[in-house]
Design a binder for these strands. Sequence first.
DNA 1: AGCTGGTTGACAAATTTTTAATTGC
DNA 2: CTGCACGAATCAAGCAATTAAAAATTTGTCAACCAGCT
Length: 787
Amino acid sequence: MAPFRILSFDIECAGRKGHFPEPTHDPVIQIANLVTLQGEDQPLIRNVMTLNSCSPIVGVDVMSFDTEREVLLAWRDFIREVDPDIIIGYNICKFDLPYLIERAQALKIAEFPILGRIRNSRVRVKDTTFSSRQYGTRESKEVTVEGRVQFDLLQVMQRDYKLSSYSLNSVSAHFLSEQKEDVHHSIISDLQNGNAETRRRLAVYCLKDAYLPQRLLDKLMFIYNYVEMARVTGVPISFLLSRGQSIKVLSQLLRKAKQKNLVLPNVKQAGSEQGTYEGATVLEARAGFYEKPIATLDFASLYPSIMMAYNLCYCTLVTPEDVRKLNLPPESVNKTPSGETFVKSNLQKGILPEILEELLAARKRAKADLKEAKDPLEKAVLDGRQLALKISANSVYGFTGATIGQLPCLEISSSVTSYGRQMIEHTKKIVEDKFTTLNGYEHNAEVIYGDTDSVMVQFGVSSVEEAMNLGREAAEYISGTFTKVYFPYLLISKKRYAGLFWTKPDKFDKMDTKGIETVRRDNCLLVKNLVNDCLHKILIDRDIPGAVQYVKNAISDLLMNRMDLSLLVITKGLTKTGDDYEVKAAHVELAERMRKRDAATAPNVGDRVPYVIIKAAKGAKAYERSEDPIYVLENNIPIDPQYYLENQISKPILRIFEPILKNASKELLHGSHTRSISISTPSNSGIMKFAKKQLTCIGCKALLGKGNHTLCPHCKGREAELYCKTVTHVSELEMLFGRLWTQCQECQGSLHQDVLCTSRDCPIFYRRKKAQKDMAEAKLQLDRWNF
DNA sequence: AGCTGGTTGACAAATTTTTAATTGC
DNA sequence: CTGCACGAATCAAGCAATTAAAAATTTGTCAACCAGCT
């Protein structure tokens, strides 16, 4: 089979000054294209189509046109000529493609939207919303281009990875360690209206936006993984991006049923009946800091195994009446702990167990092949396949429990979970019964925690090796698997713990954290870093005083206003539309305010909203104090360090330190380091509007009388010293700013041009802006000496 | 009339409940 | 063949758990008020 032809593209359009571009008014000014053959590193074609003249770019075919109509038609012809199988880009489904179509409509170019592989078939655009528990609610557009798969990397990222920001910039930084500049749309117009040189600059941005999605596609091997998934589950690739999990299971069911000459019933929607059933058991967590190794016993793919072992399926479920009528012998049926009855496989083999058997067998084969594979490409293919098979196996159970689905069957799902509950309780009991001093073991084993398919056991031994041996013995005894040991282990509560992860006795593999702030996206970076570094110091370095000192320094820095704004940005997802929220929340209110400022760039449903908490009147709710970080930076609004200390840092830190340190609260949050509070910059809102700013002495901050601009009489004698100090301060800040500026220039790839980037996701951007503000302020101080 | 003790209502503080976000398995 | 109006059909893996913030409710406090007693 010929390799796929992949087109990556990006468009730039010029909005009227200060407005986000709209297809009815604003022209498309540039389109950048990259065409690549699947599996090859270098693109076949690199080109840019641009309105008005543009200076040449090395290695790129630059096509300048005089009218927008020519640009659009050139692109249409280009698509038809290249005839790509897959069209990729970043946010192309919601922005680039619909924009081109609608723009062509506005310009009345009727012959433009014929881009697919069906002759004379026009591209159609439709608004859609997708909503599921797993992926959340998201508004998008459906663009039909026959014969070409649209593979929008934004959608892929949002589905496959949980990130705190999904901007192309932030995603590229995360996966490719490569930044891109974020240029505000108002600047795009300026560059377009400049000269051939500024348009060249714009073209370079545009090309980069087409290049990065291509890099992501290669690096993360999406084509392999998605093609494998499509093959295994039997759905088109577009379904994997536009539909949910259940269509995959349904497709497999249909395929299997067809083989067996069966048909699936058309189950009517059960109305508003939202039946729910009992799920898995989570064992009570004995919270604490464990300095002895903790062994983890678990059952590999528990739910699929249960369904296979007990032959649970739609076609094996019988009612008590059936049992009587058909006179089924008791040895031919299983009664599940939840009270349902299923016939055994000798009478009727279930379809679901059969699907699962095949999936798991195929996964086993893929894993075996993976071990033998040498070629990295082949490895990638096989790893993608085995992962796809695992996910498929796990979602079969979920499908039967989906009450608003095609074929719900709560009898199956509740039976699965009831067996699961029985197994974990049973495991806990026999481990604690067997490994006792009475039975000749050195210590009594204690189950300290367990969730769904795993139990954490403290055997009481102090070496990792002994714990591993006992773990293996126990696993054999309960016919489960033994995988790992945690040592040391910090158990905070159910679903929240951290520990060093050992799979071999000589060295730990990594630090593993579950459920706590380091892995949650709704915390600011400050909290994430702080918790992570503390855990590192406590678990790996075993240096508790060091961790305490570290926290104190961080708190002191925060209160002194020395904290970088990028560390204080909190992000939360906007999960529903504004009116559906019943209570006011910080990110929802901010999104609403931003909508009023500029409707086009405000966050939408499904987007994540970044915000910081600013100073305000005492007693103001958090939702009244949330603000856009960029806005805060530009308008010099003071943030509220106290909020970050009390509402962000304090509780997570205490949860970690409480099991380790007595008086943790006193030690960490009320020490002398919390008294070094900086004088806040006066807010330009509320009562402060009426306060007059008075000059203070540069030496000692005492208020100065009239006609006195620099020093109070007391400091008069130190003139030379203080002047030097101010000069040094300014030059230090100038150097810092210069360094950051150069860094941004390097990022944009040129040291000879102005920096235009305003990326919300880039820490350098925040620091550069702050350095700029500080420098301006310091210069103002210096100017006072000239009086 | 003046004092006392109890009641009441307004408001603040404390506590509980609800809502939303997010993760574990 | 396209565009438009209208109606019908389709679609969405699961539960358990923690945490923070807002909203609702209870509790506490204090002053004003009033009736009864000395």
